[in-house]
Design a protein around this nucleic acid. Structure first.
Lengths: 188, 188
DNA sequence: CAACATACGGAGCAGTGCTCCACTTAGCAA
DNA sequence: TTGCTAAGTGGAGCACTGCTCCGTATGTTG
């Protein structure tokens, strides 16, 4: 029934869209998420117009490229909560997952801020509920202070991942943040 | 003797340099640190050439504009250490000072990363020793874990300040980081 | 006042993102 | 097979960046 609700695109259009996704993924690895649109079009063997028709904004393209990984991260939240000793441990593990995702994407975290409000919104919309669930569970267990929102934590961790210096370990700093969260319950 | 080693610049050159500094400060407030160079030149009533002669790179201009405030922040470190109950409290207060400086500068933290390696280097060079002093004092007092470097902390806090969302409070997040630092000493 | 080094201004180049529309071609009906 | 039409394409072009270069203007000095 939904077979007819989606009027199948032309074969070349579908082919180009896939070529664009593949090319973009490759170019992002090589040149970072901020790579010139022309480069991506060239890598896919299509023109500028094609890229903008399939992905009206740069954010749409980035989202499409990373959608699977964001989904995986989101789905890992409940799983970690179920499989961990404490909610706080689950939260820490999940944050690690998120950090790992961001830091392996050459400039993604930086791109999240500078321009792309839409890109930012997608990540936040998808992941904040998951984060909130972990946060709530930990707060309910009395393991963490409850005055930090999921939004703030996600935003902060995202910011933390913007660095690229070899003497800087985003995972460690993010861990510090989560640790700090835990101190509230037993602090002066 | 050094009077002659510095061959006094022409009066108009000095005047323009000052006009540029004033104009840049004003434009940075209005449009952020990433404001187009043309805008700054126009605001100062000079041409493009003049701006680049006085400040070869954008970082030089930004550094010149904020030098005083960075100095003040650096000098506040030892003062806080001397005047606080504990080194950890001094560190927290100093970090707050640094965060306040960054967040009131519309986009400075973001600019620190995206392009300007030189800008970044200036801030880090000037402030890391101060941070290290506070960190060492707190570590010596057994108040914090000692496996986080001043570089990492400064870099992390700088990253944390990149946000501009009203529902995001960089000071709070940075405080969490410092709190997390303290948990190391009494943690499992 | 003259002459010259210093400093100025902005046209121009190269590199972005993104738009627009004349052209091409896939898919289909005859 | 052929021809039609709408979907899809490609890249020239525009607006906007940062930054350079050099002919021109002006402060300074003797």
């Amino acid at each position: 029934m939904s077979e007819e609700a989606i009027p199948r695109k032309r074969a070349d259009a579908r082919r180009n869209q896939q070529a664009l996704l593949d090319a973009a993924a490759a170019v992002f690895v090589r040149s970072g998420v901020e790579a010139p649109v022309r480069d991506i079009a060239a890598a896919a063997g299509v023109g500028m117009g094609t890229i903008y028709r399939h992905f009206p904004t740069r954010a749409d393209l980035v989202v499409a490229v990373y959608r699977h990984q964001v989904e995986a991260c989101a789905e890992a939240g409940p799983a970690l909560l179920a499989g961990s000793v404490t909610p706080h441990a689950a939260l820490a593990a999940w944050i690690d997952l998120f950090v790992d995702f961001l830091v392996t994407k050459h400039g993604l975290a930086a791109a999240l801020h500078s321009d792309n409000a839409a890109l930012h919104a997608y990540f936040l919309d998808r992941l904040i509920p998951v984060c909130a669930q972990l946060l709530d569970a930990a707060a309910a267990a009395g393991e963490i202070r409850s005055d930090v929102t999921a939004f703030e934590l996600m935003y902060g961790v995202g910011n933390l991942c913007a660095g690229v210096d070899p003497r800087y370990d985003a995972r460690r700093l993010a861990g510090l943040l989560v640790t700090g969260l835990g101190s509230g319950s037993g602090r002066a």
